[in-house]
Design a protein around this nucleic acid. Structure first.
Length: 419
RNA sequence: GGCAGGUUGUCCGAGCGGCCAAUGGAAGCGGACUGUAAAUCCGUCGGCGUAUGCCUACGCAGGUUCGAAUCCUGCACCUGCCA
């Protein structure tokens, strides 16, 4: 059997590791790995998904997985190179922690004989006094070294500077690694490439405090062919929470990836093996119009994040919305399901198309809406709108309830009639 | 501390008393072509509006003027040269 590290490398999930030979050897046995997720928002996002995938692979390879949700680190904030963060309240952070703890569950096995464990660093950080922290943890760190970290160096250069609070962040994260090393024998921490400094700070601390050795594995930033970060849809983050990015929008995000990128993304985000991915890659080259690779990618990831039921629904909805058929011929329940996840708004019978476009968010302003219609970029129920003053009448509300507005090729919204 | 230059729309970057909602490029958005792809070409790109109309905008605060992004004063920040 090949080493899991080879598998991760083949999938493009490894940017950098400490002592690769040593790590490879450790992975031949069984180790305990952890990855931390700070509760900076009410949901994990695209970037965190990569980390969850790595943990998933490692758990399947027989390693023990600890998922750390950062109840304490989230209160402090990892310094960004650009500007100081605004502190979140303890209540809000606790709320995010609870949401994220629940959110990671589908990705890992929490039952069985090798269950993943969720830990919260607030449990061991909160009881620690400032004096003990300074004496036991702080003493192991040299400021000289800390200020060399990229994010911190950038902030020291900046007009704004950096608060003592954020400066301390790396000590907290390092302390987490030490704690998990002691309590669980954890010897591997994974994270994004930008976390390298924080991760290795933990390795150093384990070495200084315990004389032990531990590993770090970082994942590359996933970028497209232009070097742009993935995970932004129309400028907004792609969230894993269905109430923040709908399963429909999530699926659509993936179905739209470029041909040249799809094989790479299949390797990173799906469980498909080399043969399957090779076949899909070939399909993308030979029969690109079928979009088989994109469909597989979108279906696999949507299923992983939202479940098979959600995937079936959004596939059906996509079929209705992007198929060639006339939406008027779709039966009422199917239409309702297909439009359920679209952005929508309630409109009066007799409202203008312009008003409906603004109400549903397809256009930013009435002026923009008029422009779009003038450019021929708007359709109602797949029929192009030719007149800027066109209104939505009875016939436009399919099954008496909803009109399907489209801007451009792929932006849809539901205008629901107010009864 | 001294001297010089800069701060313009999402970003870069012109404008240097009226013709400026502000040249040009990028991003974005729409159209054509396609495959809900890329590339290319075309259009569009502050808000309201039927409008030759109104509002908001050229670092911040004042001032001069019939009229200022453009001139003057003060303030903040940035850059270069000298100490």
């Amino acid at each position: 059997m090949t080493n899991i590290l080879d598998e991760l490398q083949w999938r493009g999930l490894v940017a950098q590791t400490t002592d690769e030979a040593g790590l490879r050897e450790a992975l031949d046995g069984t180790l305990t790995v952890y990855c931390g997720f700070d509760p900076t928002a009410a949901s994990l996002h695209f970037g965190n998904l990569v980390q969850l995938i790595v943990l998933r692979h490692l758990q399947r390879a027989g390693h023990r997985v600890l998922v750390l949700v950062g109840g304490s680190t989230g209160l402090i904030g990892d310094p960004r190179p650009t500007s100081e963060r605004v502190l979140k309240t303890k209540e809000l952070t606790a709320e995010y922690v609870a949401r994220i703890q629940a959110q990671v569950r589908p990705f890992l096995d929490f039952e069985g004989d090798n269950p993943a464990v969720v830990v919260n660093n607030l449990d061991w950080t909160a009881p620690l006094s400032a004096l003990d922290f300074l004496r036991e943890v702080g003493k192991h760190f040299r400021v000289n070294q800390m200020i060399r970290k990229e994010a911190i160096a950038a902030r020291l250069e900046s007009q704004e500077g950096i608060s003592y609070t954020e400066f301390s962040y790396q000590l907290l994260q390092a302390m987490d690694y030490l704690h998990l090393y002691r309590e669980f024998g954890c010897t591997l921490q994974t994270g994004g490439q930008d976390q390298w400094g924080n991760l290795t700070a933990g390795v150093d601390l384990i070495h200084r405090a315990e004389g032990g050795s531990a590993h770090v594995l970082t994942t590359p930033l996933i970028t497209d062919e232009n070097g742009e970060k993935y995970g932004k849809s129309a400028g907004n983050a792609v969230w894993l929470a269905g109430d923040m990015t709908s399963p429909y929008a999530f699926y659509q995000y993936w179905i739209n990836v470029a041909d040249s990128e799809v094989a790479k993304l299949l390797r990173v985000f799906t469980d498909r093996d080399r043969d399957q991915i090779a076949a899909l890659e070939e399909s993308a080259q030979e029969r690109p119009h079928l979009r088989e690779a994109q469909r597989a990618l979108a279906a696999d990831i949507t299923t992983l994040v939202h479940g098979a039921g959600a995937t079936a629904q959004v596939e059906a909805a996509s079929q209705v919305l992007f198929g060639r058929g006339d939406p008027a011929t779709v039966d009422a329940p199917t239409l309702r399901d297909a439009t359920a996840e679209l952005p929508g708004a309630d409109v009066e019978d007799g409202s203008s198309v312009v008003e409906a476009l603004v109400a549903t968010g397809l256009a930013d302003s009435k002026g923009a809406a008029r422009r779009l219609i003038g450019d021929g970029g708007v359709s109602v129920n797949n029929v192009k709108v030719g007149d800027v003053d066109q209104v939505l009448g009875d016939a436009d509300f399919l099954h008496g309830s909803v009109a399907l507005l489209r801007r451009g090729r792929k932006h849809l919204a539901a205008a629901r009639k107010v009864l």
